[in-house]
Design a protein around this nucleic acid. Structure first.
Length: 486
RNA sequence: GUCCCCGUCGUUCAGAGGCCUAGGACACUGCCCUUUCACGGCAGUAACACGGGUUCGAAUCCCGUCGGGGACACCA
């Protein structure tokens, strides 16, 4: 089995890819991995491929795909091949390549490197629970290996007791014992492939030379190695990037950090700042420069200089950097433009006007009614607010957390659907409507009198609403204002 | 629990055996500038996880311990 010379990418056209899964918001982690892939391939005049990994039918949405494409475009990273522009190795959406995966699965079945499995979900969870109870590692027990089934899901037949070794450009050789590896499902019962199969097949067919992805994939790389071997294919060079972290060092997550690129865009972070900042994560220029453009980054990027400790995504430094760009690179007229576009955009104003039109008598009054649409921190005062009868703090916190989750996962953020959700929420949690409505109003707008709540929330948008509720949560958790002693 | 990855100031990154009494940036503190705030300037606090080796010499190499993280799905 031949490996590309990892230190000599010139030996062949460099082709890298990112494979976002369209199951949620565009994630900063995707931006980070994209940047490194992009810089690496541009250095060698290679190609950057965008492939949509929508093999999870239940969770994938076209809206999410569109949002991800837009966000990466917003960052200023241009892909050479992708679902929207096509390319020589398309289609670039995995849901459109089902026949390809089927063919490859058939091949594995024929060569005896995969087998059908008819075990029920119930049985599998039972096995798993028993293993957890016995403190054993959880894995499929291999029942269907013995029987020759001819339908069901298809599993990878992992050889017993073999050391599987692969090379990671940053970490050297990594060994994992095959007994640690599960007989991974390759083809699901809906006929869709799992990540592992689709990923390997596509990387091969799309001539990917370097797989630059998050560290979370290290432990499943042996499965991929096995697939390459069973198909008789060359193995690409693996580069596992350290994961972005929350302040507590856990993998960066929306519970603890803003992670949506859309949020950063809306909040007024500049795309070139995002790129600059992401380039500071796990990497440094030899000359120590910290302010750089994408072109600078490309020409100074050295993949082997990536450091391995998981970098904390530090919002404070990001904030400083954004301010620095604004101060030093923006003229007054740039700033005017920026503020008009970001803060007083016609789109936003168009939605606000109907809400305050009947309430103001002259333009000066505008901010009396609409200030909270433009502020990013809301001061509120709950003390003496008798409408909030949540007399116990824990309940209020729990309620607020549930509410955040629901708002966060609400499909459409229209007034009517928000109203629906919140009314249902009241019933479900047995809360007086007026109590919850006023609570939300105060936490999100800081005012007791506002335009109709649900429309207001809709115009503010999901991100602002959720951010403000989180900020509120933070404050009551610390109880800095002694809300409960009044 | 099992396997894998990682371990330098609070955060980020520098350091690839002597140049390290460990450097830059963010944050923090003080001073200066300033009617105020911000910006800017100057100064300061602050780290090689621990224990063993190897070596004349270790933040840098090796081993162990501890700590953190990730993975263990018909999710990616």
């Amino acid at each position: 089995m031949v490996c590309l010379d990892p230190f000599n990418p010139n030996s062949k056209e460099v082709r890298v890819r990112i494979g976002p899964s369209p199951t949620g918001v565009p994630h900063v982690g995707t931006g980070y991995v994209s940047l490194f892939n992009y810089a690496f391939c541009r250095q060698f005049g290679g190609k950057f491929i965008l492939r949509i990994e929508d093999t999870d039918q239940k969770r994938s949405t076209i809206e999410s795909e569109q949002a991800i494409l837009n966000s990466i475009k917003w960052l200023g990273l241009k892909w050479d091949e992708g679902p929207d522009i096509g390319g020589p190795y398309g289609p670039y959406r995995q849901s459109e390549r089902l026949d390809i995966y089927q063919k490859h699965v058939d091949k594995l079945l024929q060569t005896g490197n995969a087998y059908f499995c008819t075990c029920s979900t119930e049985r599998l969870t039972e096995i798993r629970q028993r293993q957890i109870a016995l403190k054993q590692p959880t894995s499929y027990d291999g029942t269907c290996r013995e029987y020759k089934r001819n339908s069901g899901v298809v599993r990878l037949k992992v050889p017993k007791y073999e050391k599987i070794e692969f090379f990671d450009l940053l970490r050297g050789n990594i060994n994992i014992e095959s007994s640690e590896i599960d007989d991974q499902v390759l083809l699901k019962s809906d006929g869709f492939p799992t990540y592992h199969l689709a990923n390997v097949v596509d990387d091969y067919l799309m001539r990917i030379t370097h797989v630059i992805r998050g560290e979370e994939w290290i432990s499943s790389t042996p499965k991929h190695i096995l697939l390459y071997r069973f198909f008789g294919w060359d193995i690409p060079v693996f580069v596992h990037l350290p994961l972005l972290r929350n302040f507590d060092k856990s993998k960066v997550s929306k519970r603890k950090n803003p992670v949506s690129l859309e949020y950063f865009k809306e909040a007024g972070f500049l795309p070139e700042v995002m790129l600059n900042f992401l380039g500071l994560m796990a990497f440094s220029f030899e000359d120590g420069r910290e302010i750089f453009s994408l072109d600078d980054f490309i020409s100074n990027f050295k993949i082997e200089r990536i450091s391995l400790g998981g970098p904390v995504f530090d919002l404070r430094k990001l904030l400083w950097l954004n301010g620095k760009y604004l101060r030093e690179k923006y003229s007054n007229s740039d700033m005017l433009n920026y503020i008009q576009k970001q803060v007083f955009s016609t789109e936003y104003l168009t939605r606000i006007i109907p809400l305050i039109k009947d309430r103001i008598e002259k333009s000066e009054d505008f901010f009396e009614y609409a200030d909270f649409f433009f502020k990013n921190s809301i001061s509120f005062n709950l003390s003496g607010c008798h409408l909030i009868n949540f007399n116990d703090k824990d309940k209020l916190i729990k309620t607020c957390e549930f509410l955040i989750d629901e708002l966060d996962s609400l499909k459409s953020f229209e007034g009517s659907s928000i109203e629906n959700l919140i009314r249902l929420f009241c019933d479900k949690h047995k809360i007086e409507k007026r109590e919850l409505f006023m609570f939300i109003r105060l936490a999100v707008t800081g005012k007791r009198a506002t335009p109709p709540l649900f429309e207001t929330l809709s115009v503010l948008g999901r991100n602002r609403c959720v951010m403000r509720l989180r900020a509120f949560l933070g404050e009551i958790k610390n109880d800095t204002k002694n809300f409960f002693n009044h």
